[in-house]
């Protein structure tokens, strides 16, 4: 009798501690951060035992879902505006916000050799369409417009612009060749520190406002140890190395 009770107590304690040690965190991640996040999540689970459940998509859609009760516990946004907005609306854990990556814009084409290191093709106008992310919705779209403005090409290029709803769709337009050029996130076309397919021009950082991508713990993640652990992990060396390897700055 006594031993049964002890065994039961031990069993319950073990179960309780196991759940305390290994939580699951539901994360909403901006589409441009898909590839590095997959690598980080894998390392995170290996190192901490916590597991992740990740949805990839546009920051605007996540905002609407979070406002309407989506159970996300951490948001890795593509901008700094949305997390700040959620903060001011009391939908987050205060003071959890930080910049996990600074995005890099690249002019990319599916055709090898189409873009040289001066991006001559852009100024020559010798291309059918230029795909950019919708500047109304996506920070990479805003950066693309700023770059065109800086180059003095806004007026000339405007009739050739096509808009993707997010950066993933923008890449799709360019990679199918339907648009010969596209301004996308470097993280989408880089592998092991190099642009492996097609051709690209990494836009110099001084041509657009930094694309600060902020992360924040949402109210639903308040008491979740895995949420806090993930935020710490994102600041750690291993994550930083992965983030840098995809062409982001920190």
């Amino acid at each position: 009798m006594n031993t049964t009770r002890t065994t039961l107590a031990i069993l319950m304690l073990t179960l309780a501690s196991a759940t305390a040690l290994a939580d699951e965190v539901k994360v909403a991640v901006a589409a441009n951060f898909t590839a590095p996040m997959k690598a980080i999540a894998e390392a995170f689970t290996q190192d901490t035992g916590h597991t992740t459940e990740i949805a990839y998509g546009s920051t605007g859609k996540f905002y609407a879902q979070i406002k309407n009760g989506a159970p996300f516990q951490v948001l890795l946004a593509a901008d700094d505006i949305t997390p700040a907005k959620l903060d001011s609306e009391g939908m987050t854990v205060p003071d959890s916000r930080f910049t996990y990556a600074i995005g890099t814009l690249v002019l990319w084409s599916a055709k090898a050799g189409f873009i040289d290191d001066q991006a001559t093709v852009l100024t020559s106008g010798d291309f059918n369409k230029l795909a950019i992310a919708n500047p109304k919705l996506a920070p990479y779209g805003v950066a693309a417009m700023e770059t065109l403005e800086k180059l003095g090409l806004t007026k000339i290029v405007e009739p050739k612009l096509v808009l993707g709803e997010n950066i993933a769709q923008t890449l799709q337009f360019a990679s199918t060749g339907a648009a010969e050029l596209g301004f996308v996130a470097l993280s989408q076309v880089i592998k092991d520190g190099k642009i492996t397919e097609g051709s690209g021009w990494i836009v110099p950082a001084e041509m657009y406002q930094p694309i600060r991508q902020n992360a924040v713990i949402l109210s639903a993640g308040k008491d979740n140890a895995a949420a806090t652990a993930l935020m710490d992990y994102l600041k750690g060396d291993k994550s930083r190395e992965i983030i840098l390897s995809y062409g982001y700055k920190i």
Binding site: S58, G60, K61, Y63, A64, N134, K136, L137, E165
Partner: peptide, 8 residues
């Protein structure tokens, strides 16, 4: 409509 929703 989609744009309006996405742009909040």
């Amino acid at each position: 409509i989609y744009d309006h929703v996405e742009a909040m």
